[in-house]
Each structure stands twice: as C-alpha cells, then as structure tokens.
Design a protein around this nucleic acid. Structure first.
Lengths: 253, 253
DNA sequence: CTGTTAAAATGGTTGGATCATTATACGTCG
DNA sequence: CGACGTATAATGATCCAACCATTTTAACAG
C-alpha cells in the first residue's frame, strides 16, 4: 500500500489513521510547499538547524524526513557552507531507478522490456509523423546529418553514433508534444542501454543498418505517413532486440 | 542525477566518488541482500538495535538508511513487538506515487495522461486478442457477466460496476503475459481514477454504454481480431475521457 | 595579484536516554 | 474452563547534546 496517493483513490473515504511518524508530517508539509510552488526548483530549504526550530522536531526526525524527500526526487542535499537541501524535480529519475530495480528484482525481464520498447517507439514515432511541423523535421534532418558523419567515421565512432541515435529518438518523442512519452521513452531507454553496451559490440554492418533505419523513419515522418513511421520504428527496435538476444544467449551457451 | 542506476549507465566508467554518506553504504548493502534473494519477500530484517551492531553505525544513521529503503518500496516497517523491517516488493507502488507527483507538479497534465492511457489500452487489448487462450476468454466472460448484473442494478451499483470494469481491464492486461503492461496499466489507471470519481457522476446511460463497450471488446478478443480489439479499447477510453474533459471544464465556467 | 591558511556554516555521525506501540503471556473473574 | 482485562517486553519513534567532515569564503602572507 502506497503511503498516500496524490488524491484519495478507490473512493474509500478513510485514511489509515496511523498517528505516529512525525517525520511523515514533516515530509507532507515540505512536499506540499514544493508542489504548491512556494518553493521553486533551485530554491534552498532552510538549514536543518533552522527547520528543527520551525517544525519543533529533533534534528534526527527532520533528517529522516529529508531522506524521504531526497529519495522521492524532490530535493537534493549538498554539503558544506552554502550547502543544504535544494529543491529539484528529478521525479523522472527516481522512476527510472525504480524500473531498474524491477529488472534486477526479476519482476520484469529484459524480453518484456524490449517488447514494451517496440510498442512505445512505434506509437511515439507514428504520433510524431502525424504532428511534426517543418521545424521539427528540420531538427531530425540535422541529427541525421550528424549521424551520417559518424557512420562515415566507421566503428571507431560507434559510441558517438549511438549518442546521436538516442538524441534522434528523443527528438521524435518530443514532437508528440506529450511529456509522458518523453519520460517513458527515456526511462525504458536508460534501462536497456546498459545491455546494449554489454551485448552489442561495435559492428560496421549494424552501424549502417541503423543509419538506414533512421533515414527511412525520417522520410516517413516527413511525408506524414504515421502507419509507416510506426512500423519502421518498431522494426528498427525489433532488429536490435533480435540481434542482442542472440548475442546474449551465446556466451552463456 | 540518480544516485546509482541498476547498471553503470552511459558507459561512463566512473562514479561520483562521494565518500561521506555512510547510510548510503548501508542502503546499498541491504538492497543487494534483498535483490540477491538473500532476503525474500516477507522476511524480516534484524532489529534496529541488532543492525546497529552489525554495521557499526549509530541508530540514527541506520534509520536514515531504512527510510530510504522504505521509500524505494523495498521494505515496510511495522511498530511494536514482532514489528520491524519486512521485505516487500512494492516498487510498482512507488512508481504510481511518482507519477502522481508528476501530475501534481504539472510536469504532465491530465490530458497528456489520458492520451497515453488510450494508447496503452489499445496496445494491451490488441495484444490480448492475439494471445488469449480459451481460459483467458473464460475469465473475461465471467467478469462481463458480473458487470451485467451490476448494470441491471442501475446507478446504485455504479461503483461496483466500475470495480468490475477495472478488473476486466486488468485481466486483459494480464493476458498479454508481459508484466510491464500490467504495471503501466495500473499506474495510469490509479492516477486517473480519482478524476473519474470527481468529475464523472453516476449515470445510467454511461453505465450501459460502458457495458456495451466491454461486450464488444470481449467479442473482438474472442475472435482474435487484434486490430478491432485495439480500436474498440481506444474508443472506449476516448469516450470517457471526452466526457470527463467536458464535465471538468463546466464547473469552472 | 596569487597562493595559503583560518574561520564559519552546513550536513553527517555518534551515544545514550526516553516515549509509544503492539504482540504475547499471565492472571482474574464470571 | 473460557472471556476479558492487564502487565510485560520487544521494537520502532523521538529527543538531546555533542562532535566530525566538508566546503565556501574571507583574511592574510608573500
């Protein structure tokens, strides 16, 4: 059971009524202050010794509250003079970490994640094809040119190419205009990437294949053909997944 | 920046090298013990006073570590004798909470979430139509019958109907065989539900419409028509979103 | 002006004491 | 004997006061 969801879910009119847990009250108050905009991203919370007096709690209790807020991705704590708790908004990062935990916990497998990634990439790309303005397409063209340069450089620029590839897909996600797709896309990508790094050795043929994929995807987006753009994106991811899966099972043989 | 992702992402071979933070070391050790299976779900960690001696840290430091693990969804702490830190695996719940934070933080809007939900529901249902075995269909049929009974009961059973509706969609997600879809589906649902409760008053006509939707979706799944199943599911969600959006803007005038 | 050093602010850690909660064992009374 | 209250002990929650470690800033020496 989550300690408290954003709104009282389930229609149940009662809360768990757990008194105790003073630090939770501190967490709630600070969280509200942040969410209400009273503290903006980048603002510093008062020092621990000040807040200790404000809330009338011991420093230990206050620090437990700060640990929770830090883990939620709402604040970041730095050391030294002028240090302290700074408001951040790294919620997406904590979700990425949670997905990583699920993977390591075997609640989901890499295969599952790969399947999901195909779908997300397909949907996102299809939507992008529907909604892309000329300026958006220009961004993609620019990234494609960058990628082409790295292809010319051969496998020595493999990593640089992958970096541009990531930027390309991020740019596509951004075109949808819906930040959830950007979040989900990054979350999945960041958790799959380490496996690519481990099991996908640099390879000239795959470098070129990848580039051709991007080129075709861009063409489909340009022409506004959502269905084809989606299909191409799915196949693009699928190819990589397929190859990685093979490589992943070879070594263990 | 996330304190540490599941694997060293980005290919950067270095860590941030922050010494300090003894509690982080404790967090890492306990987390590893849990992820490695040394502690299974339901197991109890030693008491604070025991762990204080094991790790050679003060109780305050240890408690900060436990707070972090609790917030991560890895443990749950209960009070009283026989209380203590119990290993749980409520990672999905923390992600649901994080999505709620994003909503409240205005990093994403309800409209964005609704769009995403249409896509997820469409994909999931299409996949279910592809993969449903006879036993799976039987479960859906049973749920549909349950729903029908509540429809007959009229709007007084509105909430009961919604409950079955949720179960139906969850069952569909389960048919995909991919736990990510279940997670994502629940995460989105649980964050949207409160808005439905607030802005969608019970209504006989909508109750029947909803039931008809489920019936059609089941039929599509039964016949294995993935495309139609996906379309129906999308439209099903879309209709509700559309209506809610209208109602949501009326009161504000 | 530059490099070094001292001071101060701030988070991090410690130890010990006490309070609050709760399962369990015990005992009392019907 | 059984139901109900009560004492007990284990465990987390909180507090307090001191001290350590890190880092910025200012003062200072050359």
């Amino acid at each position: 059971m989550p300690k408290h969801s954003g709104l009282t879910s389930k229609g149940a009119p009662f809360r768990v009524a757990r008194q105790s847990r003073i630090f939770q009250d501190v967490v709630d108050q600070i969280q509200e202050a942040i969410l209400s905009g009273e503290f903006q991203r980048g603002d510093m919370l008062p020092s621990e010794r000040e807040m200790r007096e404000i809330f009338h709690v011991s420093r230990g209790t206050l620090r437990e509250a700060l640990r929770v807020l830090e883990q939620k991705g709402l604040i970041e704590i730095r050391l030294g003079v002028n240090g302290g708790a700074m408001v951040t908004a790294a919620i997406a990062e904590t979700m990425t970490e949670s997905l990583g935990l699920m993977l390591r916990f075997r609640k989901i497998s890499l295969d599952h994640l790969q399947e999901f990634r195909e779908d997300i990439e397909g949907i996102v790309t299809a939507k992008a094809a529907d909604r892309a303005a000329e300026a958006d397409v220009a961004v993609l063209r620019s990234l494609l040119a960058e990628a082409e340069a790295h292809v010319a450089g051969g496998i020595s620029e493999w990593r640089a190419f992958l970096n541009v590839d990531k930027k390309f897909h991020q740019a596509v996600a951004r075109i949808t205009g819906n930040p959830i797709y950007i979040f989900i896309h990054n979350m999945v990508h960041d958790n799959i990437q380490p496996y690519y790094d481990t099991f996908l050795p640099p390879d000239q043929e795959r470098l070129q294949q990848n580039f051709r994929d991007l080129k075709e995807i861009l063409a489909a987006v340009e022409s506004g053909d959502a269905d084809q753009a989606g299909d191409l994106a799915r196949k693009h991811i699928w190819r990589f997944n397929e190859y990685m899966t093979k490589r992943r099972q070879e070594p263990q043989g």
